[in-house]
Simulated scan of single mutants.
Amino acid sequence: MPHFIAEYSANLQDSVDFQDLFEQVNDFLGNTGVFPLGGIRSRAIRLDQYRVADGKHDYAFVHMTLKVGSGRDLETRQKVATELFAVIEQFFQPLKAERLLAVSFEMTELDPVLNFKSNNIHQFLKNQA
């Protein structure tokens, strides 16, 4: 954990370099000292069926979620979320200057009991060090 998920309107397909966004997000999250690098995952989900506002213009949207494991206090989560949203806003600012775009972000904390994981990446990275 964490998992960063970007859901986006299909009309952004050719306008957003999600790999660049993910590089910035993963670097930021890895450098916070809050999350282990081996647990960070980022992905984008294109949505072909959507409607924004009145549907009369070429509106676009990106909604991002950061799912984190439980156990971090609210102050830590709020600091990470606020700083990550600043990274996101800076990334999308040039596109917002060109078109109608809604950008939203939320952090959610997963249930500590109903969250299951299996991962051999942590050990791999530890062995690389």
Rank of each mutant, 00 (worst) to 15 (best):
F105E: 11
F116H: 14
F28W: 07
D48V: 11
K56A: 02
E106I: 11
L95W: 05
F4V: 06
Y59Q: 13
H3E: 13
N11P: 04
V52T: 06
P112D: 08
Y59W: 15
E75F: 06
L114S: 08
D111E: 10
G39M: 00
R46E: 15
V62Q: 10
H3L: 11
D14K: 05
P94W: 15
A44I: 04
K67S: 07
R77M: 10
N26L: 13
F18Q: 02
S42C: 09
V16L: 03
S15N: 03
G71Q: 07
D27P: 11
V80A: 12
A44M: 14
A44R: 12
T32F: 06
S70Q: 03
F85E: 04
F28L: 03
D14R: 00
F22H: 07
E106L: 06
V52L: 10
G33Y: 14
F92I: 03
A97W: 04
F18W: 09
N115T: 13
I88H: 14
Q13N: 05
Y50Q: 00
N119F: 10
L125E: 08
Y8T: 01
L37H: 14
K117M: 05
F18P: 01
L66W: 06
I5A: 05
R51F: 08
E109F: 03
Q93A: 10
Q49R: 15
G30Q: 12
K126R: 05
S9K: 01
H63D: 14
P36K: 00
Q90F: 06
K79V: 01
D17M: 08
D20Y: 05
D17C: 08
S42L: 01
N31D: 10
N11H: 03
A44H: 13
E106Y: 07
T32D: 08
T108Y: 03
R72H: 14
N127Y: 00
Y59G: 13
V25H: 12
I5Q: 08
L114I: 01
T108G: 05
L100M: 12
H122G: 00
Y59V: 10
Q24T: 00
A10I: 11
A6P: 09
E75W: 02
